[in-house]
Design a protein around this nucleic acid. Sequence first.
DNA 1: CTGAATGGATAGCGGCACTCTCTACTATCC
DNA 2: GGATAGTAGAGAGTGCCGCTATCCATTCAG
Lengths: 204, 204
Amino acid sequence: MPTIKYYLREGLLPAGVLTSPNQAHYDEEHLRRLRLVRALVDVGGLSIALVREVLAAIDTRDESLHNKLGAVQEAISQPSAVELDPLAVKDVQAFFARQGETECADVTESNVTHMLAAALSVARLIGHDHFHDLLDPYLEGLKIIAQADVDYIAGRGSRDDVIEAMVVGTLIGDTVLKAVRRLAHAQVSRAVIGDGPVGPASRN
Amino acid sequence: MPTIKYYLREGLLPAGVLTSPNQAHYDEEHLRRLRLVRALVDVGGLSIALVREVLAAIDTRDESLHNKLGAVQEAISQPSAVELDPLAVKDVQAFFARQGETECADVTESNVTHMLAAALSVARLIGHDHFHDLLDPYLEGLKIIAQADVDYIAGRGSRDDVIEAMVVGTLIGDTVLKAVRRLAHAQVSRAVIGDGPVGPASRN
DNA sequence: CTGAATGGATAGCGGCACTCTCTACTATCC
DNA sequence: GGATAGTAGAGAGTGCCGCTATCCATTCAG
């Protein structure tokens, strides 16, 4: 309960309707919002500040869904102070070019592309200078996944539901994806070199 | 530089060879390890404690690659104190059954399955009680991705390289995957409702 | 009228990732 | 040989973040 007060103070939850100077009323919408916040924090691993940004993006009324999705994506893709390797930047640009994407002259323009370039930069730094070869198969697999995401979102009724589904689908989806990827790795690994189940795996 | 001293103290880096009581020598291997640590922290977003676990898993000599992969996966899948929804647990079990996986009687046995169950639990809590419909298409896409990962790892020479590639591929791969997924979303979104580029997207 | 509870605001706490400082020593340059 | 600069190692301190505890005035129930 004190946590809720804290969230109210931080502006993550709208203030309740004051029925009297010391009694505020919170409706179903408040509860829903609270659960969304908890979901973003617990599963998405977002900081309070980031949650605030995401909520702001959600609450902006006068934007197209497409833009809103973009805003949410920007918000949840922290910049990470890694310095970019020019070669990694080139990798990203080449990837875009291959996909017939818009030019993407400046990778740092968007947090998402910046994040991608940063990841590839670090990969290079560790000596993995062909990590970008994975981009194409990744995209191939992700097209299937993104299509499923869109279908899922489309199955939602109201506009509010769609927006929330976008956020949830993106953030919880990331976590689910991570987990299922681990399972897929385990499956393939078992098929190739396998011995015994991977599940509990002897620690230490 | 003080950070390196800190990492040494925390046991993330092996102590250098003391050439004299106040002079230690660090070789290429140390540098490589340091860069790996920075990669795990910066891109993987792991805490110092988690990095220690991952390194411990890497450094354990007497285990099969398969088990080592499992250990790393366990280490980087934080439990998250979300309480599990029994229905979500059932979803996970049904998913396993569908894939002809090992029984998976206890979801909490592995951090990975626990993570998956936790994510689905939270989804249910927010009213998304059909999120598990996404599991199958996710796996379908991820099979392509996992295959690419395995091919990538197989292209590495020494055993040490393979192990590191596993870790890097898993953790940096997660980040890359996240970013590319955003791009795929943007692509599909543009195709469906699109207007204008998503990239910079007007914030606020 | 009294006691329990609430909203609002301020201050405090615990954990984490560093960062600073201090000591004891050594290697080096005049 | 002596002054200077540099390093290892260890403990304490710092800043931020996400809460949590306390306080006060009000107010509602009995």
